[in-house]
Amino acid sequence: MAGLTVAVRGLTKRFGERTVLRDLDLDIAPGEFVALLGRSGSGKSTLLKVLAGLDTDTTGSATVDGQVSVAFQQPRLLPWRRVWRNVVLGLHPVVGRDAALAALAEVRLVDHADAWPRTLSGGEAQRVSLARALVREPDLLLLDEPFGALDALTRLAMHRLVETLWQRHKPAVLLVTHDVDEALLLADRVLVLDDGRIGSEYVLTHPRPRELSDHIDIRARVLRDLGVTDRATA
């Protein structure tokens, strides 16, 4: 498995009687941007938790080569720590304010370094959460529906920001989402999770930055995989 950032082999996860992940295989190359789609309850977030090391009660193997960072749907900042301290949370004290400020600069929030998290808007808090993930210089960045709780305009801005940061740092990314358009805008490869394993896979070749119409053919097929037949989208 040399050269892969993520190598999952025969991964199975059960919650009691229910099998959520079934003998699942997944490879992610270094620097590759993978989007994982699936209906709710299809095990997307479970897979992400396994890769984040938050769920070890599984069978099969899931190996990640290098540093992992996670950004969740909610920013999950400690409310009693100022913004910059949240960014370097859990890092060695030597990695101090300067590192935090550099990461905050990348998400354009240096001015808020000394603010309390409660004073941030939803989008700002989510950017702090991104800065916290990036400051660890991850080889694998796990994004668990990180834009799901944001309004549509903020979400568009966040798409561009994530794209820029990914191009600059080139971590492998696994983006878990239920938004087909988001996946088609950002990813190199789109996976659809179905019945506990990767049901279908689409490689996206259109150069970035993309527009929604760039992968219109694949979009229809992905929607069909997800069981959506009319034009209604997420």
């Binding site: 808007s121 989008g123 568009l156």
Partner: peptide, 20 residues
């Protein structure tokens, strides 16, 4: 997501507001 938002320039959702 509305189609008219296509290609909207990437922007922060608001100018950095001073800490209240």
């Amino acid at each position: 997501m509305s189609v008219s938002a296509l290609g909207a320039p990437a922007r922060a959702e608001s100018p950095p507001s001073p800490v209240p």
